[in-house]
């Protein structure tokens, strides 16, 4: 069943088209990512699902029921806010029980449910503290428990890991993924971090300028970007101009080529280009080498085991033809 359906949805703020005729169908039980730079419309889409914004035009359904005109408090959809938005005057337990309280659930029952939700996010016994006494990571878990205790049919996450440091972020990515699997709730999350989207999501919608540029699995989006924008935004691709691509024998198209698909030296069945090394840097697990091939800048990610060529040296780079991805138009 379709959990969230957008049909030609637009949201304009004055002359600004934050969301511009978006069509979208998110399946039940899916872990769905909306990826894009700031101002691309992804957050507005999330707010349209939550009910904080109303569409200027178009139709929104949540599990087959019309959602436009329905305020947030009547949608069985909950949100984990970017700044967590924990109520500073309530204890952690009261924060988590808030949704059940306003729906009229009895005190004993809602406090028990809140305790269970806190245990689920690995914060048992934290109920008596105040939000100000918790760390960023703990607050994030509370925000998650506060939303999940309501058993929403869709959970919305707005840049859920944005404020956490790298280690914590990786740990939370795994936990979120496991939680989503065990609960079976549809998760929709917004992020500007392509690594986060690629590692967690079942499907990704890449946003730019209020429109969806591409919608597909992480592998599709990464390997076969539909537009130059997607190729550039997801991962870091070499963008090859039509002249260069034609010279390589792929016809006159724009094309993208992933740096990690490029190797040093030539081999059977591979396409090759030559150029002069302009920069080389050590990144730990790999070395990044930039080569100037007749005026086209090509970056290659070479395994750390391969000796790094010196700056100014002439080198040959090669790749498998199927790794070069041509695209039409811009």
């Amino acid at each position: 069943m379709t959990a969230v359906l957008f049909q030609q949805v637009s949201r304009h703020f004055g002359a600004v088209r934050a969301v511009d005729s978006v069509d979208l169908a998110i399946a039940e039980g899916e872990f769905f990512a909306m990826l894009g730079p700031s101002g691309s419309g992804k957050t507005t889409c999330l707010r349209l699902m939550a009910g904080f914004e109303q569409p200027t035009a178009g139709h929104i359904e949540i599990f087959g029921e019309t959602a436009e005109g329905v305020p947030p408090y009547r949608r069985n959809v909950n949100t984990v806010f970017q700044d967590y938005a924990l109520f500073p005057h309530l204890s952690i337990l009261e924060n988590v029980a808030y949704g059940l309280m306003v729906k009229g659930v009895g005190k004993a029952e809602r406090l028990k449910a809140a305790e269970e939700a806190l245990a689920m996010v690995k914060l048992p016994g934290y109920g008596t503290r105040r939000p100000g006494q918790l760390s960023g990571g703990q607050r994030q878990r509370v925000a998650l428990a506060r939303a999940l205790v309501n058993r929403p049919r869709v959970l919305l996450l707005d840049e859920p890991l944005g404020a956490l440091d790298l280690k914590l972020r990786e740990q939370m990515q795994e936990e979120l993924k496991a939680l989503q699997k065990s609960l079976g709730i549809t998760f929709v999350f917004v992020t500007h971090d392509q690594g986060e989207a690629l590692s967690m999501a079942d499907r990704i919608a890449v946003f730019n300028d209020g429109k969806i540029q591409q919608l597909g699995t992480p592998e599709e989006v990464y390997k076969r970007p539909a537009t130059r924008f997607v190729a550039d935004f997801v991962g870091s691709s070499n963008m090859l101009p039509p002249d260069f691509v034609e010279m390589l024998g792929f016809g006159r198209h724009h094309a993208s080529l992933r740096p990690e698909a490029i190797a040093l030296g030539d081999g059977p069945g591979r396409k090759h280009v030559s150029g002069r090394v302009t920069a080389a840097s050590f990144l730990g697990a790999a070395n990044r080498v930039t080569v100037d091939a007749n005026g086209t800048r090509i970056a290659a990610m070479l395994p750390a085991a391969v000796a790094v060529p010196a700056q100014g040296e002439m080198v040959t780079l090669s790749f498998l033809p199927e790794d070069l991805h041509t695209m039409d138009g811009a």
Binding site: I62, F63, E65, V70, R74, N76, L100, V149, R151
Partner: peptide, 12 residues
């Protein structure tokens, strides 16, 4: 924990 009805839009 399942105290809320299993609908996506609640009645007014």
């Amino acid at each position: 924990m399942s105290t809320v009805a299993d609908t996506s839009i609640l009645a007014r």
